[in-house]
Design a protein around this nucleic acid. Structure first.
Lengths: 365, 365
DNA sequence: AGGCGGGATGTATGCGCATACAGTGGAGGA
DNA sequence: TCCTCCACTGTATGCGCATACATCCCGCCT
């Protein structure tokens, strides 16, 4: 690293032109005569000139960056200070099979959204700035990020409304995965309701379930509410004469909690013919319990989840689920941002992405 | 979005102070009397003021951003333009088990590095800027990113050396996962050599393999070279009187290619007692072939890979491997950057992260 | 009462670039 | 030959903020 980074002035002097010409060579090369352009580019190379995005952003009033903000996930809170661990010996450790879900599977959710956002940003000529909330500092972080981008995508619920409105005065904001409310923001989300309805109808189609258990998640969350509505839709649409008995419990989206529910169900002897869960983790917990007690899936009970997490592809039996297009969520968010940046006046947009029911062995006939 | 975002001047006027005071309230609140501070903060809230990072970055000569640059991965090249697909019907599709690795598994590699980088950036008070190369435009993109960050982490090999040196004149650069060469950059990488040596020694410890096959990857890459050296180390360290016969082939890190290799091996009748592969994908290909021909693993042949990809935890038998700490790579990269930003004069650092041999059923005694 | 020190605030400047506007020179037309 | 027009380049300014330095206002000491 040299003492001081070269600026337009240095390049201009070196090339014997004015700074305006240097700037033009970089921004609108067609406006400069070829000979001059070459001379300037040569100087750029010689001096190792890299334009300052801060100065450019200030002068041009746009940064070319879009932001993506997540709430802090568990993995971050746990992390200790990073101590570079000089290598030397290589530990050889047994790695027994784990039955419980790998930790931080919700983290994969973010990964996919992020990947989608990155892809779409890339295609639209933006770079992506990733921010993660840290608990109470969240507000200042969001604000910080908001100051450095042309548009911001935020996971719904991770930032207080007041702050969002604050930010929206400056740049466009798009909310990811929340329900549309009466606000001015753009929204992208998945069709939880239709997805769950289709899932439940699929279960009915496979077998005329005599009794069905629906396991909700955290009943406070929009996702859970929408999925539950989808469940109710399916029940309501079912011909009355064969409508099965249904019962509903909640298990906080937790595999352990769902496992407990299923275990006590088996103990009570009242085993339903089908168990549909508001997410995959809970469905896996149900599988755990049923398997532990020798209850056949799908032979005796059909089981289905929601999300399409990877673990569901590796369970035994593999889990029927509703696959959320996480990556598309990220893409859609940036897509919408990008469009709004092009035309700030358009009315708020809501994009509801389609989901797919993935039929696997846990609901085989 | 209002017509115009408020600036320090607006806030200053609204609060009846000078812009210097506004700036101080935000940057060094202790320097301002409490009453004044409160008044300014109130104005900030009412006006919806968000500081411009561009202006701040320009004035303060630092941005508070660190960059992470990846080469473009396949998933990106394939992507078509994003067309928002309005939802409606929910397709119900069968999702049969796939035996081949899920596409884009190398993409997961990036995800993990990225996650680590994000975590560490977060802990050091930076935000993370993610950039992805697009083939030939790579150079301009890297340069673009370099202009907006205080430091840059780059996947080794994804950017021409000349460009790196160009950038390094302006900001610190750390290379991820490459071998240390005679350069001025900081490096972080994993201990491929020691890892492979430990893996091979583990295989010897499990069973006195009479013949061992080592399947290399793409022999041009540093990773492959280092791992092969580790393999040779293990062989050389083996007592001469019981040193097994070894053979070596290359299969381009490809599952398919490795499957072919193993298949023809079985056909030839010369089946070694152990097969060690330079990555997991190839090891999985070997498992495919052996299983297809009824050759027992680990009963007849021991198989091991390198990387610790997820698919190796779900194969049958599960795959013994060397787990690379991808996430730590990302963390280490940002850690090193952060340290150098604090003390630019320190000599180039090389961090070689330790790996772990994960012993699973594919090398059970 | 005058002077002094220091905390609180204001003034002025520059960070590096984009760009509106003003030159400059040469080709072509009258 | 002189004027016009166009292509190209230079000059001057402002983007929004941080900060060195100047000022001001008090309380307090002598």
């Amino acid at each position: 690293m040299s003492a001081k980074a070269p600026t337009v002035y240095d390049v201009a002097e070196h090339a014997g032109v004015s700074i305006a010409t240097v700037s033009r060579v970089l921004r609108r090369p067609g406006d400069v005569r070829e000979a001059t352009r070459e001379r300037v580019l040569a100087s750029v190379r010689t001096l190792g000139y890299v334009p300052s995005a801060s100065a450019r952003g200030l002068a041009a009033r746009r940064t070319g960056v879009v932001g993506l903000f997540f709430p802090d996930f568990d993995a971050m809170r746990e992390t200790t200070s990073f101590v570079p661990d000089r290598s030397g010996s290589v530990p050889v450790v047994a790695d027994p099979p784990r039955e419980d879900g790998s930790p931080g599977s919700d983290l994969l959710y973010f990964d996919e959204v992020l990947r989608g956002a990155e892809i779409e940003a890339w295609r639209n000529g933006f770079v992506l700035l990733v921010g993660v909330g840290r608990g109470s500092d969240s507000e200042s972080i969001v604000s910080d990020i908001a100051g450095r981008v042309d548009g911001l995508a935020v996971l719904a619920g991770s930032v207080p409304d007041e702050m969002l409105e604050h930010i929206a005065r400056r740049i466009p904001v798009v909310l990811i995965a929340g329900p549309r409310r009466d606000d001015e923001f753009d929204h992208v989300s998945v069709d939880n309701r239709a997805g769950m309805r289709a899932l439940v109808e699929h279960v009915f189609a496979v077998r005329e379930a005599d009794g069905m258990l629906y396991i909700r998640g955290n009943i406070e969350t929009p996702d859970d509410i929408e999925r539950f509505e989808g469940f109710q839709d399916a029940i309501a649409a079912h011909p009355a004469e064969t409508r099965p008995g249904v019962s509903v419990v909640a298990a906080e989206f937790s595999r352990d909690r769902a496992r407990d529910v299923a275990t006590s169900l088996v103990a009570s002897g009242h085993i339903p013919d089908a168990i549909v869960c508001a997410n995959d983790q809970m469905a896996l917990g149900v599988l755990d319990a049923l398997q532990a007690h020798g209850v056949a899936v799908p032979g005796r009970v059909l089981v289905a989840g929601f999300d399409g997490i990877d673990a569901g592809r590796h369970s035994a039996p593999r889990l029927t689920t509703v696959r959320q297009p996480m990556e598309d969520l990220g893409r859609a968010a940036v897509h919408v941002l990008s469009r709004r940046l092009g035309d700030p006046s358009q009315p708020p947009v809501t994009l509801r992405l389609p989901v797919r029911v993935l039929v696997r062995e846990s609901t085989s006939p």
